[in-house]
Structures are given as structure tokens and as C-alpha cells.
Amino acid sequence: MQPVVEVENVTKRYGPTVALNDVSLHINSGELFALLGPNGAGKTTLVHILCTIHAPDKGTAKVAGIDVVRHPRQARSRIGVVFQDPSLDDRLTVYENLDFHGRIYGVPRAVREERIAEMLALVGLEEVRDRLVRTLSTGMKRRLEIARALVHQPKMLFLDEPTVGLDAQTRHKIWEYIRTLQQRHQLTVLVTTHYIEEVEQCDRVCIIDHGQVLALDTPAALKARYGQERLRVRFKDAGDAAAAAAQYAARVLRHAGDEVDLASEGEAFVEAFLSAHGTRIRALSVESVSLESVFLSLTGREIRDEAAGPRDQLRAFGRRGGEHTA
């Protein structure tokens, strides 16, 4: 079967910054595919290229077999997008936003009505159908955006950081919807995120940093290959720490002052370690294999978060009634 998304050797620069460096990947039909990376890794750039907002400097990208550079309009009618920043009209009602979307995608009225009703039911927004979007909560707006992206029955759904800025419970809910959609409608979904715990449930994960693909596989395979169980030990004094570090030289992942991190495998190793050093340690914890550790071993750092940018400040200005300055 032909992949739904084919990205071949895509490079994109913004001035001197290389946003994407020779990226190639395929997404199969019906797959829930995650693009994981810190902010600024190039995830959004890749999504924007696939949505025809930006053109790549080099390489080709196809969605549903259509070249997004050569035939952007045909490609657009086959994709649904939920952008990182909200893109709803908050002066229109929930229904009007969906109806507008259906109209500009050329969905005939009868089909439109049916799809809108179906999508509202799916994301549980039937009761707020006629409310102005500005009165909805952030989580509801996100759900509405997901529903909207599906009104024209796309083959491929792009979700750029769909859960950023949401509380844990709402995030969980959003993921439930995403999985339901993917399974029930055989939809192909690409999700970008920098929340590692969210990608565990995806079919395949692509780890990206500094515009390059570092790894691409199922979460289980990634863990098996790059994951590392880690024993974090804090000794009572730095001398003991140094001694232990010398003893397990091949296993030391980190050694700073009285703290030593060791590569561990299974309980046997932990017990052996404890019987040898148990009396000299202040604290000990075992970190099991997680995608977090996969990410750490691939990039050498933990995933980072970011402060509010100028766009958020402008949005705050808008909320205060900025439009009525004229």
C-alpha cells in the first residue's frame, strides 16, 4: 500500500537557521504517527510544508500521492489541519465555524449538515452548538478545531501540538478523541508534541531535533534499542561516590559530586549494588526504560519548555479589546 505521506530529503532554511535538514519519512495509511521533539526542532516547519503553507528549499513532499509544491490546492482538499495556535473565529458560533469550513472546502449542503452533526457528537460539543466560540473553554476550542478539520473528510489529519497549554485531564480527553478517530474512521494522523508521555500510545514515533530525524520506530522498538534503565544514586559523601564510579566505570552515565547515575538492567544488578554499597547511600531510585530516557540518550538532553512569545502577548492585547482601537 502506498504511504499517505512521503517526505523525501526535505531541507528548509530561514535565513541562516536550518529548520529542516534532509528529512525523509513515510507515514502509512491508518497510522497514528508522532513527531516528537523540543520546541524549535522543526516539527511545525515540517507540518507547514505538508500543509502547503511553506515550500521546501529542497526535496519533495507528497500527501495522498499529491505533490504539495506542484499541486497545493489538490493537496489541501485532502488534508485536515489543527494548528498549534488557535485558528477559530471566536465571533462566530460553534456551528458557524464548522459550516464556514464546509463551505470553503466545497462540501455540498446535505453532506455538510450530516458531517457537522456527526463531528459535534464525536467531540461532545452538541450542547454548545449555537454558542459563540469566545465563550468556550480552551479544551472545548481544541475539540472544535479537531472536529472542524474533519468536516471535509480528509485522508490525512495533521495535529500540531494539539494538547499544549491544556490541563492533564483535557489532554487525556483530546488523546481519546484522536485515537477514536484514527481507529473508527481509519484516518491517518500525524501528531507533533513535546510531551513524551503522550507518544507511548502512537503506532510509530519519529524523534526530531535541530531539523534532523534522530530515530523512527514503534515506541517499543525505540525503547528496546535506545532505552536505558538508570540507577540514580546519591551517596553520603563524595569519596564513596568516586569509589563506586571507579568500580562500575563501564556503567557510569553521569558522575557529579556525591551523585552517580549508573546504567542498570534488572533487579539482580540493583540488589548486587545495594549489598555492596547499601550502607553508604543517602538516596537511590531506579528509572525504568521510558521514551524519556530514549530521548535523553539520543539528544543528550531533556526536552525543554518555552516562555510566552510576542504572539501570546499580542493575543492578550486582543482579549482586552484591542480590535476596537479604530
Binding site: 502547503t52 489541501r76 477559530l88
Partner: peptide, 25 residues
């Protein structure tokens, strides 16, 4: 002029993207 404000509004608050990724010319 008010409609000019509506354009800036669309651009800064993301709605323009929704229109630009649609198949409409």
C-alpha cells in the same frame, strides 16, 4: 478601515491560516 482591522485580526489570531490551507484560490 474597519475591514482592514478584520484582516489584521485574522492574520494575528490565526484564522487566516484556516482560510489559506483551504482549497480556495
Amino acid at each position: 478601515v474597519q475591514s482592514a482591522v478584520s484582516v489584521i485580526w485574522d492574520r494575528e489570531f490565526g484564522f487566516l491560516r484556516e482560510i489559506l490551507v483551504s482549497p480556495l484560490d
